[in-house]
Design a protein around this nucleic acid. Structure first.
Lengths: 382, 382
DNA sequence: GAGTCCATTGAGAGCGCTCCCAGGAATCGG
DNA sequence: CCGATTCCTGGGAGCGCTCTCAATGGACTC
């Protein structure tokens, strides 16, 4: 397997002097050609397939790309040649002429976010991967960690290496959508974009889960349990998901006491702090809707320390249904489930459709964005 | 906020049909040419840069690629042209001739594994991303979900689209290493490969955390606490990480009672079951080393239900230090930490080095694989 | 002052593939 | 049985870039 002569021919170094080493970049370079037994065997080209099948390159190409308009007998012959040679099209060459990369970028611009601590990220990717690979597209992952990365990623997106992009967790000042737009790269956003004007921008396509509806369901469940002093721990209110969940809460409690609302930060600690605050302000509360399971777990701990029983004294509902957390708190968390994987799949599908309909983005307008449903999962905490 | 027109457009629906916007995909398609005002503006090519700078394409290329051997004045001129035109090299074209893709594949072949429930996955990717992007390489993510995917991925790896691959969570029968080897694609494995013969295969490069050492540290800690009847809940023993952790345990308890060993499956449930089993066999146990935090959390629950206090009656040590779990169990988990991100970074670095030294894999041998350290994190459970 | 050498530069040949276009075969109507 | 269509097929022109090779010209040596 170790197919390398122990020659020390370094990449930059010039060959000593003899015949070209690199297998000669020019086909007819006398000396080598196929001769280089050592390195990677030269991959068969369409040309060689055509030759073996006794047809022209054009015909071979047709067969490889579906075989429409080629007589069956020839098609078979070419197919056989392909199999025998183990021919695999050179994507670079194909891309060069078709301008299609069969690849989309997945950009995640949240260094320390929940995307990394929750299984969110992985699930999203899985959904995306499913959809993408079924259309024979690859997924190029671009992680943004600091400001400098924005430039790098921007350059990449503008470099024509991918046919489209899936953008996650954008912030208000995120330059990515603009960059993508400028270079004419189709993209779909994960999560409702929250910057000013985004709402009315009909060009923006995004997929989000029904955060508001989820908030409503949570409160509704709590109310159906007879709870009347329902508090809520929100996520950071500069994120649309937090705002939407809170809006859902407000939908059912339009005249609620502001003292029953505390802002957390999606972490267990933050949830705990918010819970303590709520308890101080309204010791009589009998239910809490936490906008994330992580915060709910922190709240649970604070409640326990305060001597409140869950769900008897205080009923708790979380959000996300992260198995790692929700199923293993004590008591297990009643929560709002969102189908992350499905969101990923949807995003990919939306993008793919757009790419297929390359034709006309404008006419394709209509209902571009999609909201995926959320639903209640009852466990022990409420 | 509820930004949705009440349209019921199913994903598969066909568009109404409109005039092509994005300009024909074929460069010289008579009709249009450059005329397509609407779509993407034609990207500048090296040719145009050269022309604008008044030099030849070759010189422009030299400047773009580092500018060695080009007179300063010309170099500047070309640089200016590049900036003004916003030139970005066409990677496909470059790849076509250089045979370098500046991209590596990351293959994860574990559909339902911990990789997806733990933040493991994300952390690995982050580490990889860091390293890769600093070398201006892209990361193509390939997720394997079922058997059919193996073929797809194999084809991809063999397709010459990437310069190397990072392979994760391989199983015994995993065909990927063989495929990669056959097509001469350099690769690095995440986690010690466990198939027969792998150990002695000097061609195999892998990065793993010091599972065995971690197991030792865990038991050592328990012993230092004065515990003498230390049980262990192992992971599935067909995985090297499980075996290694158990070996660590055995290193310190060579003559231990087999009744103190129970096999789990890395899930909380499995951990709980194993714990119950251990409790039944050895009611007098005073400590447990669980080979994962998830299993430890299940064990914790069973212990609580059995009326054992932790850590007073039974001390518990986990493994992984997954924040989501370890910091939020009751009591918080004392555990063994492994630096996942660093492992990712290391894998990428190893691969990159190999790619750079393309030259001769054989000579580069030396210490190919790397084991990253693990360390004890003391919280409340032991 | 002639000869030699080195640093620069440009010309041109491809990399492997797709697609336009035209020629030839096969098919069909009259 | 012949001209008009319709099908197939091969020829050939690039896609944008890198790299080899030869030509140019000035610096330097003797």
């Amino acid at each position: 397997m170790s197919q390398h002569q122990p020659t020390g021919d370094g990449p930059p170094a010039e060959p000593s002097g003899g015949a070209p080493t690199r297998g000669g970049s020019h086909p007819g370079t006398g000396t080598a050609g196929r001769g280089d037994t050592a390195g990677t065997l030269p991959r068969p080209t369409l040309e060689s397939v055509a030759e073996r099948a006794g047809v022209s390159r054009a015909t071979a190409s047709r067969v490889v790309n579906g075989g429409a308009g080629v007589r069956a007998s020839l098609r078979e012959k070419v197919q056989r040649a392909v199999d025998e040679l183990g021919y695999v099209p050179n994507l670079a060459a194909r891309t060069l002429v078709t301008r299609r990369n069969q690849a989309v970028a997945v950009v995640v611009s949240e260094p320390e976010s929940r995307l990394f601590s929750d299984p969110f990220f992985a699930k999203h990717l899985r959904g995306i991967s499913r959809e993408l690979s079924s259309a024979d597209n690859q997924m190029v992952l671009l992680l943004i960690e600091d400001q400098a990365d924005f430039e790098r990623v921007g350059r990449y997106l503008g470099g024509g290496h991918v046919d489209g992009a899936l953008l996650f967790s954008l912030h208000h000042s995120d330059p990515l959508p603009d960059i993508a737009r400028r270079v004419g790269l189709p993209f779909v956003i994960g999560g409702r974009p929250g910057w000013p004007g985004a709402e009315s921008d009909r060009e923006l396509t995004y997929v989000d889960s029904d955060n508001r509806g989820g908030g409503r369901i949570a409160v509704q469940h709590l109310q159906s349990l007879g709870r009347t002093r329902i508090a809520t721990i929100t996520g950071p209110l500069d994120q649309t998901s937090s705002v939407d969940r809170l809006d859902g809460y407000r939908d059912l409690l339009p005249y609620g006491d502001p003292d029953l609302i505390a802002e957390g930060d999606f972490t267990p600690d933050g949830g705990g702090r918010a819970m303590a605050e709520l308890l101080a302000r309204r010791p009589d509360l009998d239910a809490v809707f936490a906008a994330s399971d992580a915060m709910a777990s922190g709240a649970l701990r604070v409640l326990r320390e305060a001597g409140r029983r869950v769900p008897e004294d205080v009923a708790v509902v979380g959000f996300d249904d992260v198995e790692q957390i929700a199923a293993w708190t004590d008591p297990p968390l009643t929560t709002i489930r969102q189908d992350i994987e499905d969101m990923g799949r949807l995003m990919a599908r939306l993008l793919l459709r757009r790419l297929a309909g390359q034709v006309d983005t404008t006419a394709r307008r209509g209902p571009t964005s999609v909201i995926t449903p959320t639903r209640l999962v009852v466990r022990g905490s409420a």
